[in-house]
Amino acid sequence: MSEHISSAYDRDLEEIQALVMRMGGLVEQSILSAADALAARDLELAEQVRAADKAIDTLELQINDEAARTIALRAPVSKDLRSILTVLRIAASLERIGDYAKNMAKRTGTLVDMPPINGSDKALRRMAREVQLMLKDVLDAYVRGDAELAEEVRQRDHEVDQMYNALFREFLTFMMEDPRNITACMHLHFMAKNVERMGDLTTNMAEQVIYQVTGSMPEEARPKGDKTSFVRTPE
């Protein structure tokens, strides 16, 4: 690992990282709030998630600008360049996760007048919390430069996939039992899929952290757990 030549570069990077962390904190909050809003049918909280998404988008633009400015001004190479590239990729993933949370909040507005589907709100909330915990650990791994923690998060996505599989089957059953459940179940399924995608994006971020710390992407394949592509309705 080479010593940093420019301390000005270090200062820039620390400020950009702070922007990423501010964004990360907002996204973490959005995941939890979106799930809570659904469970409590709380439209005010759902509205807060939609408002937070605007702040998240603004931060991403700001991060892109700052990163471009730093690249132009300091012409970073090797590890420094890697750090800037990581910033850009992590910010992009965070922005996507924020969008998914916003989409959950929107659907909550639609679901508000429908009867709750047996226990699925709670299951979704548990899944969302699991993803938020993964994101928390990735962000911690990022500020601390802890590749090992990032690797551990990468392995945990499997659990989220399993939760998604279980929910998928449940929704299928509810829809077959009573066609009146279909509208609610379709929305809930999209929400579950949103959370599952958040987990995938968080895993990508974990890989970025590993890349930044070690200089190479992890080679070992992680377990793939979304099996819903092969699920059929029972005869």
């Binding site: 620390e14 400020e15 962390m21 973490e28």
Partner: peptide, 20 residues
């Protein structure tokens, strides 16, 4: 916080929106 953040931007240590 499981780390000494002395010298670093406080947001990197405390990122939660309510506190910021």
């Amino acid at each position: 916080l499981k780390m000494d953040f002395t010298g670093r931007n406080y947001i990197n240590a405390l990122r939660q929106p309510a506190l910021l």
